[in-house]
Amino acid sequence: MRALETVLLAKGYVDPAALDLIVETYETKIGPRCGAQVVAKAWVDPAYRQRLLADGTAAVAELSFSGRQGEHLKVVENTGQVHNLVVCTLCSCYPWPVLGLPPVWYKSAPYRSRAVIDPRGVLADFGVTLPRDKTIRVWDSTAEMRYLVLPQRPAGTEGWSEERLAELVTRDSMIGTGLPHPAGAGA
């Protein structure tokens, strides 16, 4: 496919910006997109949460969306003290079997370089402001190890079903550039 793409690009039959635009339209339609279900289950089921944090690959496979590729998935948990942010500084490694296609900004050079140097600034660009005393941990993905953020469960969701909780889980909250929707947001 890369050969075909190279030839079409060289002859001007496709243009990279247009390709990105088309792919972006469908980026939420790629892969099993099961991340939200994984997070919601971890919120309601403490034993599952334990297994997920201990071995992300196996715990995600339990929900039968097995990652086809060999890479390992490590789940990192946000707490009152720590916020996690995922980046791939080298290229754009991404847990797509869980999250679908990476958003275009994830692949951009500014995000890849700034996420490490100035994570707080990057989060501010995404509209996320964290307390100054909260630690931000940045995880750099590789071809062998992908990361998924387990966000904090929003307040006021006691007794909610997994399905209802899953609607609060955004893609960005599992990359760390966002937070889940609050309980009040109409989903």
Partner: peptide, 25 residues
């Protein structure tokens, strides 16, 4: 809601055909 893809390269392949058509190939 529309097309779904199992893997990222499938979406790229989809986009290639759609754009080549848009450019009149």
């Amino acid at each position: 809601e529309g097309p779904v893809f199992r893997e990222p390269w499938e979406a790229q392949a989809f986009a290639l055909a759609v754009d080549a058509h848009a450019k009149g190939l």
